[in-house]
Design a protein around this nucleic acid. Structure first.
Lengths: 111, 111
DNA sequence: GTTATTCATCGTATATTTGCGATGGACTAA
DNA sequence: TTAGTCCATCGCAAATATACGATGAATAAC
């Protein structure tokens, strides 16, 4: 794809928040995160039972969540247990909260 | 693309939150939203001056934000003024806040 | 060793996203 | 009418995302 010639500068927060938002941008990933956060299940195998998708697809979504740092995996051979990454979860919470609550006055008088 | 055969059920909140997250998943859209939220600018033309991207690209991103309901446009011929949509902004804020704060105990003992 | 289980990764197909320049519609101003 | 401004949309190209089945690595159980 053609990329912008002049490089656009983003803040670290913008980059991080965008990457977390991307991880949250698919409903099945929201569902997976919720299942892990509520301890309804922990293992990939349990997820594949609860979610009617191919195991490879679930694994792919887990990889995306790992990439955003929102979850972490621990090997319990031959299983893998996934859990919420509390630090990144908190970071996400704070980032979004700040972003939405920093500005409250939306009355526009520039017209 | 091949779609899942058995349809997956998502809650309304999951669908809405995912669509908002998708709108937030690109740093330039976070930047645009922030510029609008802080009243640093309101018109497409101002955005194209502040952001080194083609006007058509900016317009496309604005369309994505419109689609998620996060902004609204008003025509001031020949300009268009964009503003934050306060209702959807609040809804987004609440959705993310609830999602992140509903579950706090991440200690996993299912291993 | 052999077999079974679990899950990541590969390969593939299709859909969507992201960027650009070009074009055209809508309106204003002259 | 003509010219100019502003911006949405089109058409294209490339990158990324999303789904699947097949395969293979790692380990446990026998």
């Amino acid at each position: 794809m053609q990329r912008t010639l002049s490089v656009i500068e983003y803040s670290v927060d913008e980059e991080v928040m965008a990457s977390i938002a991307k991880a949250l941008s698919h409903p099945v990933r929201l569902k997976i995160l919720k299942l892990l956060a509520t301890h309804e299940c922990c293992f990939t195998g349990e997820l594949t039972e609860l979610i009617p998708m191919a195991q490879s697809t679930i694994s792919q979504h887990l990889k995306a969540l790992l990439g955003a740092g929102l979850i972490q995996g621990e090997i319990y051979p031959p299983k893998v247990r996934y859990c919420i990454n509390p630090e990144q979860w908190l970071k996400a919470s704070v980032l979004f909260e700040k972003y939405f609550n920093a500005d409250k006055d939306f009355l526009c008088d520039c017209g």
